[in-house]
């Protein structure tokens, strides 16, 4: 008998008392009623608690905000699906010379990503209660690697993508897409439980929440 058959056989044998399959009581909260302002406020509170930097902007002010955030950076990466118009202000200052784009057929290597100072991505959905932003590798978020290797991640969250609680967020996601759930910059508490922000993942997380 091969290992697969043998293990399945052992498990069936272990279950020969035919234990009942219980109904799962889903009496926990599965929806909520918070309005947009409350959601923004709650998400901001959580992200700040994780030591992320949060900027709340009207849509029209986002290019200006990105230009300011990118001021100190050298080269920065973006995924090909991110709206180029977001960088109009930044381009006005440097002509777009610092920007590199990860696109199908023109992939940035790990070494190239290691040499950029920042990455700007969109996001799929956010959970206010836990301060979580989910990336699902859509074209405006890019491959998982691009938001991982650069030391600074600037992440754009649309207010309409903010949910209050996790069950609401999961209903908006396709589980089979590669996902990264991000709740603050990378962190460790492994030495005497003292929290240190910034280990292997991006050490700085800037979140731009876009109203409307």
């Amino acid at each position: 008998m091969n290992a697969r058959e043998e293990i399945l056989d052992r498990i069936r044998s272990a279950l020969r008392d035919a234990p009942a399959v219980p109904d799962v009581p889903r009496d926990y909260r599965r929806s909520s009623t918070l309005g947009e302002e409350e959601l923004i406020e709650l998400l901001t509170d959580r992200l700040v608690d994780y030591k992320a930097n949060v900027f709340i902007e009207e849509a029209a002010a986002v290019p200006q905000r990105l230009a300011v955030l990118l001021e100190g950076a050298g080269r920065y990466a973006i995924p090909h699906g991110l709206d180029q118009a977001l960088f109009a202000e930044a381009d006005a200052r440097d002509g777009g010379s610092r920007r590199v784009t990860d696109a199908p057929g023109h992939r940035l290597s790990v070494e190239e990503l290691d040499r950029v100072d920042a990455v700007v991505t969109g996001s799929a959905v956010a959970v206010a209660e836990t301060g979580t932003i989910v990336l699902d590798a859509s074209p405006d978020q890019g491959r998982r690697v691009i938001s991982l290797v650069p030391d600074r991640h600037i992440c754009i969250v649309r207010a309409r993508d903010i949910t209050a609680i996790l069950p609401e967020a999961l209903r908006r996601l396709d589980g089979t897409r590669p996902q990264t759930w991000i709740s603050g910059p990378s962190a460790t508490s492994d030495i005497e439980l003292e929290r240190v922000e910034g280990v292997h993942g991006p050490r700085t997380l800037d979140v731009v929440i876009v109203r409307g």
């Binding site: 992939r107 209660e129 998982r144 589980g175 590669p178 759930w181 603050g184 993942g201």
Partner: peptide, 21 residues
Amino acid sequence: STGERMNPYTSLWTGVTPDDG
């Protein structure tokens, strides 16, 4: 586990995603 509202990173993958990972 850590007494956090959420851990900093969770990764999900389903088999192979062409061109990613």
